[in-house]
Simulated scan of single mutants.
Amino acid sequence: FGRFVRLDDSRSRAGGGSGLGLAIARDIVTAHGGTLTVDDLEHGAAMRIRLPLPPTD
């Protein structure tokens, strides 16, 4: 989730992406009281977003 981090060597800034996407997404989810995690999979990764539900009356 570090800023300006690109883990895929084949992706360059010229090819698109500044390495800010996950850091920004994490900040937005955190601002709403949630969490953002990434799970490694055999092929790729899965992003998990958990947000609290609003209270019910």
Rank of each mutant, 00 (worst) to 15 (best):
G2M: 14
G2L: 12
R3W: 14
F4K: 08
F4Q: 11
V5T: 11
V5I: 11
R6M: 08
L7S: 09
L7D: 08
D8Q: 07
D8S: 13
D9P: 09
S10L: 03
S10T: 05
R11I: 10
R11G: 00
S12V: 00
S12G: 09
A14C: 02
G15A: 08
G16N: 01
S18R: 13
S18E: 15
S18N: 14
L22D: 10
L22H: 03
I24H: 15
I24D: 10
I24K: 08
I24N: 07
A25G: 00
R26D: 11
D27T: 09
D27M: 13
I28P: 02
V29F: 01
A31H: 15
H32Y: 14
H32G: 02
H32I: 01
G33E: 11
G34W: 04
T35H: 06
L36D: 04
T37N: 08
T37P: 00
V38N: 05
D39E: 10
D40H: 09
L41Y: 03
L41W: 06
L41K: 13
H43E: 06
H43D: 13
H43G: 03
H43V: 08
H43L: 09
A45Q: 09
A45S: 05
A46Y: 05
M47Y: 09
M47R: 10
R48C: 08
I49H: 04
I49A: 13
R50P: 00
P52C: 04
L53I: 05
P54W: 12
P55C: 08
P55T: 14
T56H: 10
T56M: 12
D57M: 02
D57N: 10
